[in-house]
Computed example of a mutant assay.
Amino acid sequence: MAAMTEFKPQHFNWRMEGSVGVISLDRPDRKNPLTFESYAELRDLFRDLVYIDEVKAVVFASNGGNFCSGGDVKDIIGPLLDRDMKGLLEFTRMTGDLVKAMRACPQPIVAAVDGVCVGAGAMIALFSDLRLGTPEAKTAFLFTRVGLAGCDMGACAMLPRVIGQGRAAELLYSGRSMSADEGERWGFFNRLVETDALEDEAVALAQRFAAGPNFGNMMTKTMLNQEWSMTLDQAIEAEAQAQAICMQTRDFKRAHDAFIEKQKPVFEGD
Results as ranks from 00 to 15, higher is better:
Gly133His: 04
Arg83Gly: 05
Lys100Arg: 14
Cys105Thr: 15
Cys117Asp: 01
Leu98Pro: 07
Ala104Cys: 06
Gly115Asn: 01
Asp84Met: 13
Ile76Met: 14
Met94Phe: 03
Gly119Thr: 12
Val118Arg: 04
Gly87Thr: 12
Val110Met: 06
Cys105Asn: 12
Val118His: 01
Cys68Gly: 06
Gln107Thr: 10
Phe141Ala: 11
Gly71Val: 08
Val146Pro: 03
Val113Thr: 01
Pro108Ala: 04
Asp72Arg: 09
Gly96Val: 08
Ser69Gly: 07
Gly96Leu: 14
Thr134Ala: 02
Lys138Pro: 00
Ala122Leu: 03
Met123Ser: 14
Leu126Thr: 10
Met123Cys: 12
Ala122Asn: 07
Lys100Tyr: 06
Pro106Gly: 10
Asp97Asn: 15
Ala140His: 08
Asp75Phe: 11
Gly71Leu: 15
Val73Trp: 05
Pro79Arg: 13
Gly121His: 02
Thr92Gln: 11
Leu126Trp: 00
Ala112Glu: 01
Gly87Val: 14
Asp129Pro: 03
Leu81Thr: 14
Leu130Gln: 05
Ile77Pro: 01
Leu80Phe: 08
Cys117Phe: 05
Asp97Gln: 14
Phe127Gln: 02
Cys117Met: 06
Asp114Asn: 06
Pro108Asn: 07
Ala104Gln: 11
Asp84Cys: 14
Asp97Cys: 10
Ala137Asn: 00
Ala101Asn: 09
Phe143Arg: 08
Leu88Gln: 14
Thr95Arg: 13
Thr139Trp: 03
Ala140Trp: 07
Glu136Trp: 00
Asp82Arg: 11
Leu126Gln: 02
